[in-house]
Design a protein around this nucleic acid. Structure first.
Length: 703
RNA sequence: GGGCGAAUAGCUCAGUUGGUUUAGAGCGCCUGCCUUACAAGCAGGAAGUCGGGGGUUCGAAUCCCUCUUCGCCCACCA
C-alpha cells in the first residue's frame, strides 16, 4: 500500500468494507474451543429477527465490540456469540399486518399455513439486522449464529419446560391474568406496562335488597364490569358499614342479589370504603373471592375480544358491545335510573400491552406458570455475595427489589409463532390426564386420543436460556464446557426483569452456575429534547446512514465517547454533521497519522528492541513514556467499563501527544538515513502498534 | 405511596474513591496561518457565581440536608 496514493481526507466507504472482509477471511472472529487461552465470552442480546438496526443497537453493540476486541487483543480466547430472537408477539404482529393487506386474518389462513408464512417472512426479510451489525464493524463469531427457534435451541426450551414441570416448579393455573384483546393473548406482569391517564371514578348506588329506599355507594372506574360482581366488601374495622354486614344488595340494572361481606384488602380511605368484587375481571377481586368463606361464582362478563358476553347477567342491550361502548351505555343507563351517585375525574394508571399499547383486560383463564421464588433464591444470593456485579451499581438494587418480591411467571401465550407447549390433555372426560413430555405420546394410558396444548411459550421463556442454550446445551458440547459461564452481559436497563434476572435464575438452576459475572447496563439514545429515539416520533437516526456518510468508526467513536458509564447519549437527528463531528474528525486524524507513518516506514527502521535508550532523544523517550501511560489508563478504564474515559484517553494521546507534539517534533529527523532517523521512525511506528497494548507485535488492524 | 437518575461554557457532554483543575473536551464563536499527514487541519483566544439555599471540612462540581425543574422505574386505592 503506497500511502501517498491515498486521498488526504479519509473516505471510510472505500476502506471499511475491505478491512472487514479481510478480518472475515482471516477468521479472526471465530473462537477456538480447543485453544489453551483464557476464554472471554459475551452473548449478544438477540435482536428481534425482524428488527432493523437503530441507534440503540448501535450503542449497545459497539460497547460489546469494544470489550471483545480489547480482550482479544489481550490474548484471550474471545467469543462474541450473535443471534436473533423469534420475538413471538412482535413477529406475529408483523406478519398479521402483511396478510391483513390481503384482507386476511390468521384464522382465515389457518395455524400451519400461517406459521409457514411467518417462517418464509423470517427467511426472506429476517436477520437483516445481523448484516447491518457487520456494517458497523461488529466482530461477532458468525459461525455460531443462533436463532431461538432453531431446532437444537427449541429442544433446550422444551427440555426446560418438562424439567421444571417434573420438579414441581411449573404448573397450570386458573386465574386472572393480563389479556391483550388486540394481540389476543395473555401477558406476563412485566409485559403489561403502567401508563398514567385521566379517567372517571363512577360512584354507583347499590340498593339494599331488604330496604330498597336505602343504598350503599361503590366507586369504580369500570362500571361495565358490575354485572360480574359477586359481592361487596368493606374493611372489617370500618364502623360505617357495620349495620349492612351480611345483608345483600342488588346489582343495578340487573337486580341480581349479592351479599355484603368484609375483607382486609379494602382501603377504608379510598372511594366510599365499599368495594365491588368482580372475581373474573380483577386479580385482586379474584383473591378476595377465593379467600371468602362464601361460595362465590366467577361470572365472565367481558370476553377475549373485550366485548360484553351474552350471559343473562348482562342486560340484553349491552351484550356484544365493545368494552368502551358498554361503559358509556352503562353510565347512561345508571344515570337514567338515578343510580349514579356522582362522577369524579380521576388520575390513575392503566396497564397496556407492551407491544401494541392496547389497554389490557384482566381475564380469567387457564395458563402455565413458573414458580419463581425457588428460582430467585440463588440469583438473589449471588448478587448479595457479590458474585454478580452490576455496572452502574444502582441497577443491582432494582434487580434485588424485583427478585425479593417476585411473582409467578405466566409463560403461555395464545399465539401461533413460538415454541408449542409440550403438554397433552386426554380427550376422555373420565380420564382427563395431562401429560408433559419432550415428545408426543400416541395415546393416553386410558386409550383415548391426546390433544396438544394450543398455546406457545412466552418469547422470554426461550431467551432466558440464551447464555447456554446457544452453546449447545443440554448436550455437553465443547462450547458449553469452554464458554460457560460467559463474562459480560451488555444490555439496556429496560430488560433487567424480562431478561437479565431470568437468565441469572436459569443459569443457576440448569447450569448450577451464574451465566455471567458483570451486567453492564448502557443508557438510551435520545434526541436533543431528551426524547427517546423512536419510529413514531420520527426523531430516529439511522446508523447505516451515519456509516455511509461518516463511517462506522465515526459512529462508534461518537457513541462511546458520548456517554459516561451507563448514561444516556444525546444526538441531534437534524444535525448529523455536528452530532458525529467528533468521531468523523478523529477517524480522519487517525487515517492521516497512519498515512504519515506508512510514508516514513518506507525507509529503514531499527527494531525497537535493538535500540539502546541512550541513543534516543528526549522526545523519543517522552512519547514512549506517554504511550505506556495511555496503555495503562486505557486498560484500567476498560477493566472498569469506563468506555468514554477510554475514548478520551486514546483521543488525546494520539491527537495532542503523538500528532501535534511528537510528529511535529521529529519531522526533521524522519527523512534522515542515519540512526537518528531510524530511531524516530521506529518510535513513531510503535505508538500505533498494537504491541503497545498486547506485547505482541502486529499492525493495529489485523489479528 | 415508595425508589432512582439528571441539572457544569451558546449547544452536546466529561470530571473514576473530596485536594496534582486557579473547572475540562468537542461543536460553535474570535485572531492568525492552504507550515507537502490531515483546512474534517495548525497556532492562539474569548466564554461557566459547576440549578437555588444551607451545612460538614484546612479544602467540595465531588459528601450531608433542603428546595426547584425535567426524566425514569416499582406498587393489588377499586
Amino acid at each position: 500500500m503506497k500511502a501517498l496514493e491515498l486521498p488526504p481526507t479519509y473516505d471510510p466507504s472505500t476502506i471499511e468494507r475491505a478491512i472487514y472482509q479481510r478480518w472475515m477471511d482471516a477468521g479472526v472472529f471465530t473462537a477456538d474451543n480447543a485453544s489453551d487461552r483464557d476464554p472471554y465470552v459475551i452473548v449478544i442480546p438477540p435482536p428481534n429477527v425482524t428488527d432493523v438496526l437503530h441507534m440503540g443497537h448501535g450503542l449497545n453493540n459497539t460497547l460489546q465490540d469494544v470489550l471483545i476486541r480489547f480482550e482479544r487483543m489481550r490474548g484471550r480466547e474471545a467469543l462474541w456469540l450473535p443471534g436473533t430472537d423469534h420475538a413471538g408477539i412482535a413477529t406475529q404482529n408483523v406478519v398479521e399486518r402483511v396478510i391483513a393487506q390481503e384482507g386476511l386474518t390468521r384464522h382465515d389462513v389457518g395455524r400451519d399455513a400461517f406459521v409457514k408464512r411467518i417462517w418464509s417472512h423470517v427467511e426472506t426479510k429476517g436477520s437483516t439486522i445481523l448484516e447491518q451489525l457487520k456494517a458497523i464493524g461488529a466482530s461477532c463469531d458468525w459461525s455460531r449464529t443462533r436463532f431461538t427457534l432453531d431446532e437444537e435451541y427449541s429442544r433446550a426450551v422444551i427440555k426446560v419446560f418438562v424439567t421444571l414441570y417434573h420438579e414441581d416448579l411449573l404448573y397450570r393455573g386458573h386465574r386472572v391474568i393480563h389479556w391483550c384483546p388486540r394481540c389476543s393473548t395473555s401477558l406476563s406482569d412485566e409485559e403489561a406496562e403502567f401508563h398514567d391517564r385521566t379517567a372517571q371514578l363512577y360512584h354507583i348506588r347499590y340498593r339494599l335488597r331488604d330496604e330498597p329506599q336505602r343504598h350503599v355507594v361503590v366507586a369504580t372506574t369500570r362500571p361495565e364490569t358490575m354485572f360480574g360482581d359477586v359481592c361487596l366488601v368493606f374493611h372489617p374495622d370500618d364502623e360505617r358499614f357495620a349495620d349492612v354486614n351480611g345483608r345483600s344488595v342488588l346489582i343495578p340494572l340487573s337486580d341480581i342479589e349479592i351479599p355484603i361481606g368484609t375483607s382486609d384488602h379494602v382501603e377504608q380511605d379510598f372511594g366510599t370504603g365499599m368495594l365491588k368484587v368482580t372475581p373474573a375481571h380483577d386479580a385482586n377481586d379474584f383473591d378476595i373471592a377465593n379467600e371468602s368463606p362464601l361460595d362465590l361464582d366467577r361470572p365472565v362478563v367481558i370476553d377475549e375480544h373485550a366485548k360484553m358476553t351474552n350471559i343473562d347477567r348482562v342486560p340484553v342491550s349491552l351484550q356484544g358491545l365493545d368494552r368502551d361502548e358498554a361503559r358509556k351505555q352503562t353510565v347512561e343507563l345508571l344515570e337514567k335510573a338515578g343510580l349514579m351517585d356522582r362522577i369524579e375525574p380521576y388520575e390513575h394508571r392503566v396497564r397496556k400491552c407492551y407491544r401494541c399499547h392496547t389497554i389490557v383486560e384482566p381475564f380469567l383463564s387457564d395458563q402455565w406458570f413458573v414458580k419463581m421464588k425457588p428460582l430467585a433464591a440463588p440469583a438473589l444470593a449471588a448478587y448479595r455475595q457479590g458474585d454478580i456485579r452490576f455496572v452502574p451499581e444502582r441497577w443491582g438494587k432494582v434487580y434485588e427489589n424485583w427478585l425479593e418480591d417476585i411473582r409467578d411467571w405466566n409463560i403461555s401465550r395464545q399465539l401461533w409463532w413460538g415454541h408449542r407447549i409440550p403438554a397433552w390433555y386426554c380427550t376422555s372426560e373420565s380420564c382427563g390426564k395431562t401429560i408433559v413430555a419432550e415428545s408426543a405420546p400416541n395415546k393416553c394410558e386410558c386409550g383415548a386420543v391426546l390433544r396438544q396444548d394450543e398455546d406457545v411459550l412466552d418469547t422470554w421463556f426461550s431467551s432466558w436460556l440464551w447464555p447456554f442454550a446457544t452453546l449447545g446445551w443440554p448436550n455437553k458440547t465443547p462450547d458449553v464446557r469452554r464458554f460457560y459461564p460467559n463474562h459480560s452481559m451488555v444490555t439496556g436497563p429496560d430488560i433487567i426483569f424480562f431478561w437479565v434476572a431470568r437468565m441469572i435464575m436459569a443459569g443457576f438452576h440448569f447450569m448450577g452456575e451464574k451465566p455471567f459475572t458483570t451486567v453492564y447496563l448502557n443508557g438510551m439514545v435520545r434526541d436533543t429534547q431528551n426524547r427517546k429515539m423512536s419510529k413514531s416520533l420520527g426523531n430516529g437516526i439511522d446508523p447505516l446512514h451515519v456509516v455511509e456518510r461518516y463511517g462506522a468508526d465515526a459512529l462508534r467513536y461518537t457513541v462511546v465517547a458520548g456517554s459516561a458509564t451507563g448514561a444516556d447519549v444525546n444526538l441531534d437527528p437534524d444535525d448529523l454533521d455536528t452530532s458525529f463531528a467528533v468521531g468523523r474528525n478523529f477517524a480522519n486524524k487517525l487515517w492521516n497519522i497512519g498515512r504519515f507513518i506508512l510514508t516514513n516506514l518506507e525507509k529503514p527502521v531499527t527494531p525497537i528492541a535493538a535500540i539502546d535508550a541512550g541513543q534516543m532523544e528526549l522526545a523519543d523517550r517522552w512519547i514512549l513514556a506517554r504511550t505506556q501511560r495511555a496503555v495503562t489508563e486505557t486498560t484500567e478504564a476498560l477493566d472498569a467499563f469506563r468506555f468514554s474515559e477510554t475514548a478520551n484517553t486514546i483521543y488525546h494521546f494520539l491527537w495532542d501527544e503523538v500528532a501535534d507534539w511528537y510528529i511535529e517534533q521529529v519531522k526533521p529527523r524522519l527523512g534522515q538515513d542515519g540512526p537518528s532517523g531510524e530511531i524516530a521512525r521506529s518510535v513513531l511506528g510503535r505508538t500505533l502498534h498494537r504491541r503497545a497494548v498486547t506485547g505482541r507485535c502486529r499492525p493495529l488492524y489485523s489479528r
